[in-house]
């Protein structure tokens, strides 16, 4: 047993070194952010998620949106994120502090969503896109999320106010109406809240935004 003991101590110590570097140090360095006031408006930023937005985040997680969409804007010298309009500046660690669950992602089968709330605030667009991405984005390989909508027969005297205006060829037909479920509303509220690099923060004050965007 004696020789094995030293091998054991050895491989656990090498493991510990990485634990200190890649677990402990991030917790110490990246795990204690506090809100700061926005120089422009005085409000505390980044804002915390409302309870509806948190529900929406849970829908995002449950349906695995992260496997195609990232939420991190890279600097202009590295990638074309800023040129594509995905953010006015790179995202920094502080931007995520109130997300509770980081969904930074590692795949871009679809575009980055860090600032989708700025780039695409229209509820209607999101409902159509999520009902069937082919409506707004022909050729997309994003799946349709019809199961997050409710379909019922239309009552001509009392049509639903929030029924989707589906184009020809999509949806169940003229006799039916499609409305977003509560989960879908929550999801869109969450997407609209995604404005991760829209704020001026101590690490990236407005004066530097111009140069980063080059």
């Amino acid at each position: 047993m004696s020789k094995f003991r030293y091998i054991f101590i050895g491989f656990m110590l090498t493991f510990l070194s990485s634990w200190v570097g890649l677990v402990l140090m991030p917790v110490w360095g990246l795990g204690n952010f506090e809100q700061t006031p926005d120089p422009a408006t005085g409000e505390m930023i980044p804002p915390k998620l409302s309870s509806l937005e948190k529900e929406g985040r849970d829908v995002y997680i449950a349906n695995g949106c992260v496997y195609c969409h990232s939420q991190q804007v890279h600097p202009a010298r590295v990638r074309t994120d800023i040129a594509r309009g995905w953010g006015v500046r790179r995202t920094v660690a502080r931007d995520y502090m109130n997300q509770e669950v980081a969904q930074m992602g590692t795949m871009r089968t679809g575009p980055d969503l860090s600032n989708i709330g700025v780039r695409n605030p229209s509820e209607t667009w999101h409902y159509l896109h999520l009902y069937n991405p082919q409506i707004t984005s022909k050729g997309s390989n994003m799946p349709p999320f019809t199961f997050l909508f409710e379909t019922k027969k239309k009552d001509p005297e009392n049509p639903a106010k929030d029924a989707l205006n589906l184009p020809e060829g999509f949806g169940p037909g003229a006799d039916y109406e499609v409305t977003p479920s509560h989960e879908m509303r929550a999801l869109v509220a969450y997407l609209q809240s995604l404005k991760l690099s829209a704020y001026e923060i101590p690490e990236a004050p407005a004066a530097r935004i111009e140069s980063l965007a080059e």
């Binding site: 003991r5 030293y6 101590i9 656990m12 110590l13």
Partner: peptide, 12 residues
């Protein structure tokens, strides 16, 4: 983890 691995350098 530190306690569990203490002396590893000496062990080596």
């Amino acid at each position: 983890m530190l306690l569990g691995s203490v002396g590893a350098l000496f062990a080596f």
